[in-house]
């Protein structure tokens, strides 16, 4: 069946990076929110599987280190992936995730399409929001990573900086973490899974491929380019067998459900916090 034919979009390594990020991010979210809400009964309940707040914080610290190690490996991977032969021109190729002038034009065209003013943009391999989501992890991880390392052992770190810098580090860590979680649990989930064209679930990051019809709608310039270059045959692959697709859906919705649960209960309990902005 021709409708079952997919185009390969992510390599196994890239999918592993994304899955690693999901697991560490979710573990950090649960333990971090448990600590932030520890004065409420909901926060205490969240911390209970980790053995109360001490255990939750310990898991938070170790998971944070693991995530930073993964980030370090990803930086090396990125450097390795750069096409150094054609550097720096290769950074601005159509397969590159670097923001380019085209993304600004795409953004304006996309906004025009949303408002019914113009035809939609012909996205190439990456749309502007996919690039934003990718780089948001970079700046987010740099901010929470640096402040997280400062807060890892306050007695040790205050030997190298004034202790009051940790007041600032904690708030910066907290705001960036809340921003990241709120963005993932609403905007990211909505764009990738809940908007009408993708609803109810898009398994691209688990399968590594997407149906060619969908990609013709969402990334027409990319599909056209592959066809023009005559590479389509090597990019095509069958979609995953049904049991695997059920597994992807189950795992995916368990994680989405966990994110929504954290978001909803965090909003319901926010009035009980004694933190003041």
């Amino acid at each position: 069946m021709s409708s079952k034919i997919n185009v390969r979009r992510f390599s196994l390594t890239q999918m592993m990076f994304h899955f690693f990020l999901i697991i560490t991010f979710m573990l950090l979210s649960v333990t971090g929110i448990a600590w932030m809400y520890i004065e409420t009964s909901w926060g205490k309940a969240l911390a209970t599987p980790f053995g109360g707040y001490v255990g939750a914080l310990e898991v938070h610290r170790i998971t944070g280190l693991i995530l930073l190690a993964g980030f370090g490996i990803h930086i090396l991977y990125t450097i390795w992936k750069v096409d150094w032969k054609h550097f720096p021109r290769s950074l601005f190729s159509r397969d590159s995730l670097v923001f380019q002038w085209r993304d600004v034009k795409d953004f304006i065209l996309h906004l025009g399409w949303i408002l019914g003013l113009s035809k939609g943009p012909q996205f190439d391999r990456w749309s502007w929001w996919e690039k934003f989501d990718y780089w948001a992890v970079w700046w987010g991880l740099i901010i929470v990573g640096v402040t997280g390392l400062m807060l890892y052992d306050p007695v040790f770190s205050s030997d190298y900086m004034p202790g009051w810098l940790l007041n600032i580090a904690l708030w910066v860590h907290r705001i960036e973490a809340v921003l990241a979680m709120a963005h993932i649990f609403t905007i990211h989930f909505f764009i990738e899974h809940w908007r009408p064209r993708c609803f109810p679930f898009s398994a691209t990051m688990f399968e590594g491929s997407k149906s060619i019809e969908h990609l013709r709608e969402e990334h027409p310039a990319w599909v056209a380019r592959i066809e023009a270059e005559g590479r389509m045959d090597e990019m095509l692959c069958p979609s995953a067998p049904v049991p695997l697709r059920i597994l992807y859906f189950g795992v995916g919705y368990a994680l989405i459900g966990l994110g929504v649960f954290l978001l909803v209960f965090a909003l319901l309990n926010v009035g009980l916090l004694t933190l003041k902005l």
Binding site: L111, W113, I114, L115, G116, W164, N167, I168, W171, V172, I175, E176, V178, L179, A182, H183, T186, I187, F190, I191, W194, R195, P196, L277
Partner: peptide
């Protein structure tokens, strides 16, 4: 303390001020 938190709040509020209306209209479209 004030300026660091202010900067982070501008960043956070800015991201949502862009994305929430944007994706709402996008979904409707």
């Amino acid at each position: 303390f004030y300026y660091a938190v202010l900067f982070m709040m501008i960043l956070a509020v800015g991201v949502f001020a862009l994305f929430i209306p944007y994706v709402t209209l996008w979904g409707l479209r």
